[in-house]
């Protein structure tokens, strides 16, 4: 490396980037993030492949709005419904956050199904990604359970009776059904503890599981790479593969040319 006078702009740049470098040198996090964001994907990748990230965004919205709602919501049979009224009518922007959480719940579920449909139609569940499909199914089940447990929380007539029906539906599962139903409602009948039970499951147990599963899911996505669409000529080896200047495949993201300094 030839020695050269360090210019003023370079010095400024270094000064500004120093904290980033500091973090990188001690944790490798910056490199990791860059690797995640700028990893190579097939050149003919499709917009439908953004549905997974859309689902992730919907989940993050649910997690955030839910945490805020939890600051005003009171999970006991006597105050649950009034606290919901309070959130909707009195708390500043409460109607908005509650609306985001309530409509977002449907958006999350719908996006999950659309993402699953994309994976299915693209055949992206095949070797070596079977395990990610299995994790996806678990995520789907967890997501639906979130919808079920969250529905009870407003504690109005719809919430109550929909939950009675839902619990008894679980009760009709062969053999274990009655035990599942009784576990869910925490007794033979819906009782004073049922609401708090659903609340704990809704805001702690299942979200924890979902976050862990999303971590695994994304780890596998990064490790295995993303599939090309089924019509991909490139993947079939029959299309023209235009190599880019620096030897990579054509793609949405081009690796930056390496300049040695």
């Amino acid at each position: 490396m030839a020695t050269r006078r360090v210019t003023r702009t370079e010095q400024l740049q270094q000064t500004i980037l120093y904290p980033v470098d500091w973090l990188e040198e001690r944790s490798g996090l910056v490199g990791g993030l860059k690797y995640f964001l700028f990893r190579k994907v097939p050149g003919d990748i499709n917009w439908f492949q953004t549905l997974g990230s859309a689902t992730l965004t919907a989940f993050i919205v649910q997690a955030l709005t839910g945490s805020i709602l939890a600051m005003y919501y009171k999970p006991d049979p006597n105050s649950a419904y009034p606290s919901i009224q309070h959130i909707t009518n009195d708390v500043w922007a409460g109607w908005l956050v509650r609306g985001m959480h309530r409509w977002g719940a449907s958006v999350f579920i719908i996006l999950m199904f659309m993402h699953m449909g994309r994976v299915f139609l693209f055949g992206a569940y095949k070797y070596p990604r079977e395990l990610n499909w299995v994790i996806g199914v678990l995520l789907l089940a967890m997501g639906l359970a979130e919808g079920f447990t969250g529905y009870l929380l407003p504690w109005d007539q719809t919430a109550y009776w929909a939950t009675v029906v839902g619990i008894n539906l679980n009760g009709t599962a062969p053999f274990l059904g009655p035990f599942i139903a009784q576990f869910l409602q925490g007794g033979t009948y819906i009782n004073a503890d049922t609401l708090a039970r659903f609340y704990a499951i809704h805001m702690l147990l299942i979200p924890g599981a979902i976050i862990a599963l999303i971590g695994l899911h994304l780890y596998l996505v990064v490790r295995l790479g993303v599939t090309s669409p089924p019509w991909s000529r490139e993947a079939a080896g029959t299309g023209s593969i235009i190599p880019s200047r620096n030897g990579g495949r054509r793609g949405l993201t081009r690796p930056r040319p390496r300049r040695s300094r």
Binding site: N168, T172, F175, G177, P178, A181, T188
Partner: peptide, 23 residues
Amino acid sequence: KLSFPGEPVSGLESWLYPIQPPH
């Protein structure tokens, strides 16, 4: 014996629910 709603208590289908939790 007391069973959850939706569970037949007699006939063939009742075999699907051999044990009821303590009520």
